[in-house]
Simulated scan of single mutants.
Amino acid sequence: MNCPHCQSSNIVACGSQSNGSKKHKCKECLKTFTEGGKAKGRPKQYSTDYDRVKAWRKRRKQN
């Protein structure tokens, strides 16, 4: 099985959803997905978790 986001085969199991489908996490792009599920990307404004935290801190300083 490959990651639907980056096509890497470096994935691990990381739990299951309430409907019983298993969740997986890609070790390359750090995104989670279910087998056979749709590939959902991050919002374009946040390309990485680092960018998301950086934007949050910037908004927090402004207040």
Rank of each mutant, 00 (worst) to 15 (best):
N2K: 11
N2Q: 13
P4E: 05
H5D: 04
C6H: 05
Q7K: 09
S8P: 01
S8A: 06
N10M: 00
N10Y: 14
V12D: 15
A13T: 07
A13Q: 14
A13H: 10
C14N: 15
G15C: 07
S18Q: 15
N19C: 14
G20C: 05
S21G: 03
S21C: 05
S21R: 04
K23C: 01
K23P: 00
H24M: 12
H24D: 02
K25R: 13
C26L: 13
K27Y: 07
C29A: 07
L30S: 14
L30E: 12
K31M: 14
T32Q: 13
T32G: 05
T32A: 09
T34G: 01
T34V: 12
E35Q: 00
G36W: 01
G37A: 08
G37F: 01
G37V: 07
G37Q: 01
K38H: 09
K38V: 14
A39R: 00
A39M: 04
K40D: 09
K40P: 03
K40S: 10
G41M: 13
G41Y: 11
G41A: 12
G41E: 12
R42V: 05
K44P: 00
Q45V: 10
Q45E: 15
Q45A: 13
Y46C: 06
Y46Q: 02
S47L: 11
T48Y: 03
D49A: 12
D49N: 10
Y50V: 03
Y50C: 08
D51L: 15
R52T: 06
R52P: 00
V53P: 00
V53Y: 12
K54H: 06
K54V: 11
K54A: 11
A55Y: 01
A55F: 08
K58R: 06
K58M: 12
R60F: 11
K61Y: 03
K61G: 04
Q62P: 02
Q62K: 11
Q62N: 10
N63S: 13
N63M: 12
N63T: 10
